[in-house]
Design a protein around this nucleic acid. Structure first.
Lengths: 141, 141
DNA sequence: GTATATGCAAAACTTTTGCATCCTT
DNA sequence: AAGGATGCAAAAGTTTTGCATATAC
């Protein structure tokens, strides 16, 4: 299983070092797909790995540059990292419980292209975060 | 002119103090509508005001709570503040020159409501940032 | 063996907080 | 006069950087 990650990393032009393999594994297997650098660092420490927070940031930055990972800047100035599995999507964020729902809507994508075109922009990227209260929290509150 | 701002501030339940008036003036008159706390602080210092950066943050936070100002978390983890003049809008950001174009598109707004509803969310807020290259930069590059 | 990556500690940034003093009402 | 607001300095939180050591190829 580690040899698979080796391949993934090498394809991305990165040496297959232990911290990189562990971080990649964690991102792939963790239930919560959106993690802060601190989350990842703590999880690795808890798992008995000897890793530095600085390395986590360095690795995540490299992963982002290599397109393996997407970095989001959520409200509150917090960054979360998410494995990029090729399929673009946007996010619904529950401001009460923190739940994140991913979705992708072709109509929204298309309309954004039209808006950008109208203003003379070539879209490189976009992010849409919809903040609200999820069903569960609505019932609880 | 200062007395007008007094009214605005009092309406918002805030005492009309000098730093608040100056910051409000700056947000209203500055060409660039999106400013960081640091930008505002520097502009006030340059204008000869004796103000602390902490006060700028405090005032902006109060303005945000009072609905006078909107805070955005852009890529890079940087916060920018913008006068809230009541009309919701989204942003096109040029990743080359930093230009920001505001727009509002009813179709996008409507579609977001539909998507949120489908997932059981009640929308409190949303932000859509489209990152790309503006017309001017496309011609230059 | 060589170059790159790592861990640790220290630094750089942004934002917040404590506290004595000042200003608005 | 009284309470809230301010400036300064120090603290807190996140992310980056320097450097000697360890690791992958």
């Amino acid at each position: 299983m580690i040899s698979e990650k080796n391949q993934d990393l090498k394809k991305a032009g990165l040496k297959a070092t232990l911290p990189r393999i562990r971080i990649l594994q964690l991102l792939e297997t963790n239930k919560q797909r959106h993690l802060t650098a601190e989350d990842i660092y703590k999880a690795l420490i808890d798992a008995g790995e000897n890793v530095g927070l600085a390395t986590v940031y360095r690795v995540l930055t490299q992963f982002e540059a290599a397109g393996l990972v997407t970095r989001h800047y959520f409200e509150g100035g917090l960054s979360v990292f998410e494995l990029d599995e090729g399929s673009h999507h946007d996010h619904l964020v529950c401001t009460n419980c923190g739940k994140i729902v991913e979705f992708c809507d072709d109509e929204l994508e298309l309309r954004q292209q039209q808006v950008a075109k109208k203003h003379g922009f070539t879209i490189a990227d976009h992010c849409l975060y919809i903040y609200g209260i999820c069903r569960d929290c609505q019932n609880k509150l």
